[in-house]
Amino acid sequence: MTQIDTQHPSDANHNPLFKLGIVVNPFAGIGGALALKGSDGAEIREKALAMGAEKKANEKMAKALSILEALSGQFTVVTAAGDMGASVCDSLGIPFEVIYFPKATQTEGEDSEAAAKAMVEANVDLLLFAGGDGTARNICSVVGTQVPVLGVPAGCKIHSGVYCVSPSAAGQVVSQMIAGELVSEMDAEVRDIDENAFREGKVIAKHYGEMRVPAELTYVQAVKMGGKEDEALVLDDIAAYVSELMDDEPDTYFVMGSGSTVGAVMEFLGLENTLLGVDVVRQGELVASDVTAPDLLTLTKDKPTKVIVTVIGGQGHILGRGNQQLSPEFIRQIGKQNMLVVATKQKLQALQGKPLRLDTSDAALDAELAGAFTVITGYKDKVLCNAR
């Protein structure tokens, strides 16, 4: 067995490795070949197994994970015991840590939910799961938009947009993330059909939520001027999108960090900007300029607040360089989910795969914030980047 006991191994540069969470619904798709129109429900699974159905979900997860062989040593895996993930990792010789143990051999949707919850608590950079629409519903109910997810198609019905077109395609996207390449992010819909109605010939699909999903980035299609960004135009796009986000949340205080990209947003809004300081905006008006760390804590206490920061060119820092007013106390007060990072793709590409940097002067907070960040790179254009 290749299971490892580790909390968060590091590479030679003492940066935490990419942490991949793996969850497999081992019973996904077993009713398909037997014309049972799905696999949801214990009775259907028991019937399928009695009819000689074969479990294929782990086989499909193996196809996705096999593509990661060349990246051995660049990532670590946390998963669930047995056929919910550990067995496929063991078969491929992938080191792993088990963080969830199902109570029975025949797992249920509750196990997928519990395993997913454990992955979120383990602060994974990506949750890779194998299943069908029922599994996607289970995952969505627990994860929501807390961490990026990606589905390996293994079910009878795949109506949800969170799945790749094939297991190998999923492996390719994951390999790009581990390698530190720019990978776009999109909000993908989770849908499922009523299996009982489907067995009667009726297709009734319902919306159950959305999750954050990485999508392979085709760079030339995502920028202007023949594949090269025109920085002024891109900054306008970023500013226009941030302005819309502000309009959608009129009661929220937006703390504007330092830097030229954030300055471009302020210019778009027609507001004076402290280029090397921190300003506060609400309802399109400048509330406070060049605030101190104590002032910021007092101003935003018990109020809906988001902070907008950018990436320091060449270094990759998003916290701790030129914006020390964003104290650890303030960041904890608002939470990672209320941090908006803005940057052009050119600036991100110049990092050459290096992670975004966190230096809040609080090592515990840096560890809490580490992982995937959504970076706004244009008008409704976002990519996923890892921060360490």
Rank of each mutant, 00 (worst) to 15 (best):
G171S: 05
G277V: 10
K202I: 15
S168H: 09
S260T: 15
P153A: 00
A363V: 15
M246K: 04
L217S: 14
G314K: 09
L275M: 11
T274I: 03
Q146D: 11
T298Q: 13
E229A: 07
R332A: 08
A154K: 02
V23I: 14
S327W: 03
F101E: 13
K63M: 13
L150F: 11
L319Y: 05
H207Q: 15
T6W: 10
A179L: 11
V234W: 06
G41L: 06
L71P: 12
C156K: 07
K37S: 14
N15F: 04
A136K: 12
T107W: 00
G41A: 09
C140Q: 14
T310I: 12
K228P: 00
T2D: 00
K303F: 10
K202Q: 15
L348S: 06
G371Y: 03
A12V: 05
G259W: 12
L17M: 06
T261Q: 06
G82Q: 14
A33R: 14
E231P: 14
K157H: 05
G31I: 04
S327H: 04
E249R: 10
K60P: 10
L286V: 01
K228H: 11
N273E: 11
M266V: 12
S160G: 01
D11L: 00
T218F: 15
H207F: 15
K63Y: 08
C385N: 02
D230T: 08
V147H: 06
D125V: 08
L351P: 07
A350P: 11
A33W: 09
H159E: 03
G134P: 06
V220N: 15
G284T: 04
P167H: 00
P148S: 04
L326V: 00
K103E: 12
I204A: 13
P153S: 03
I4G: 02
V278G: 03
I4D: 01
E195I: 14
A118P: 00
S289R: 13
H317E: 05
C164N: 09
V88H: 07
T252H: 13
G259N: 11
V173Q: 06
I308Q: 02
R321G: 04
A239G: 04
D302P: 04
L276H: 08
Y208F: 15
T374H: 05
G85C: 04
I331G: 11
G180T: 10
T274F: 06
Q106W: 02
H207N: 15
A122F: 05
D366T: 07
E54R: 14
V120S: 03
D381Y: 01
E46A: 12
A62P: 04
D290T: 02
S260D: 13
T374V: 14
D5N: 12
I331K: 07
V88K: 11
T145S: 14
A188E: 04
N25R: 07
V278W: 03
H159I: 00
I30H: 09
F18S: 02
P250W: 03
G335D: 09
G284Q: 02
R137V: 05
G32Y: 01
G73R: 12
A122P: 02
T274D: 07
K306R: 13
L286C: 02
D125H: 07
